[in-house]
Design a binder for these strands. Sequence first.
DNA 1: TGAGAGCCGATTGTCGACAATTGACAGGCC
DNA 2: GGCCTGTCAATTGTCGACAATCGGCTCTCA
Lengths: 227, 227
Amino acid sequence: MGTGMGMDMDTGTERDLPHRIAAQISDGILAGRHAPGERLNELQLSRELGTSRAPVREAARLLEAQGLVISHPRRGFFVRTLTAPQLYDMYDLRLALEIHAAGQALERIGEADMDRLRHQVGLLHGLARSARPAEQVAADYAFHRMLASLSGNGRLLKVLDDIALDMRAGIAVIGRLYDDPARIARNHDPILEALEARDPHRLAAALRFHIGEARDRVVPLFSSLPT
Amino acid sequence: MGTGMGMDMDTGTERDLPHRIAAQISDGILAGRHAPGERLNELQLSRELGTSRAPVREAARLLEAQGLVISHPRRGFFVRTLTAPQLYDMYDLRLALEIHAAGQALERIGEADMDRLRHQVGLLHGLARSARPAEQVAADYAFHRMLASLSGNGRLLKVLDDIALDMRAGIAVIGRLYDDPARIARNHDPILEALEARDPHRLAAALRFHIGEARDRVVPLFSSLPT
DNA sequence: TGAGAGCCGATTGTCGACAATTGACAGGCC
DNA sequence: GGCCTGTCAATTGTCGACAATCGGCTCTCA
């Protein structure tokens, strides 16, 4: 088993200005401050950030290669719009990656890791009644990311991170994704059980069910968007 | 099944200057003109390309997000160096993705597609005696990409493309990868047979064997590099 | 009234310049 | 002799400016 890097892909170094700007724009997109399809005005952004346009453009290039932003030559940078098939593809890809990652994780996982996973699922259950969608999404994502990181495959984790970011950006327009938090929390129990039983088959099935359900719930909802 | 885009992810539009520069740098890395770990001198590159440094920096950002290049703040951009575990991770990821993609492709594949796949494998066999490694690699890659594109998942194809580029860049230092072209060509036959038989299990096994073999051959070779 | 040509403000793409930082080199001190 | 320090060329990071281009608007004409 290979381990390209630890679970924290963070380099630890202070980040570049273009990277910080890219993070700012990312956050802006995720927070809904920039709607999908919206044009990113370089001059306006640079003024808001107190810099010139050059670092902003570099940040936009980072986001472009990451898939969050698309550049139309001579027109500028635009927040990427997601089509339903693209969203479906991302769920499909996530499914394949997470199942594979979980399988790998099974062979590397320790008791301390199991504890953290259990804790995370417990957190999910606790949040189920809190009616704070943002925290639920975060906790859900944290669990999946934790599991993926236990695969030891840093590249896989990076791909999943990119997908997660892209998905969250694209479906930020849908406010209420977590229509039944308790059910979603419960969907994580079989995953946990399969992990404890070290049963790769059940693990794959549980993930397939959970992610497949999310896909079948979100994609149709997304398809029937106003615009 | 979703289809985010066709098999040609090319936008069709004329490319940006930064994109063209990024392609140039990519090619330079793949051709071995830029060794892994080497610093990319912005001024020199811009002069060679007849532009200023701004588009070069944007190109470097594109490559950075893609993983081909890494930026050390205040130090510049460097061609990414690959470690053996990272290379292993890429093979592992490729394995998971290609198996998944092939499974999806099974349900969408037509007779015309099968013909093209057959043709490609035939080409591989023909090239096995040609002693032209570059063309063999290209033909091999073309087959795998074709199969992956038949999954209909554009995002998956993009990830595989990124990995392939990254891998080829990292192992460009190893000249002779195709020590036994005939054997590698033969490894594609079971894949083709499984496809014709519409047998997902055999298909997965054939891919696992083929890619796993490549991994077990390349990674140790890479580990024992001079520097 | 509707369509088309032409103008105009706004925005992008690129450039050259300048300040800040880095790594290397030479020189001095212990 | 080896290590530390100060200087210096080379390079990066950022900026403001300028030309090119785009989309929208208005004006004109049938």
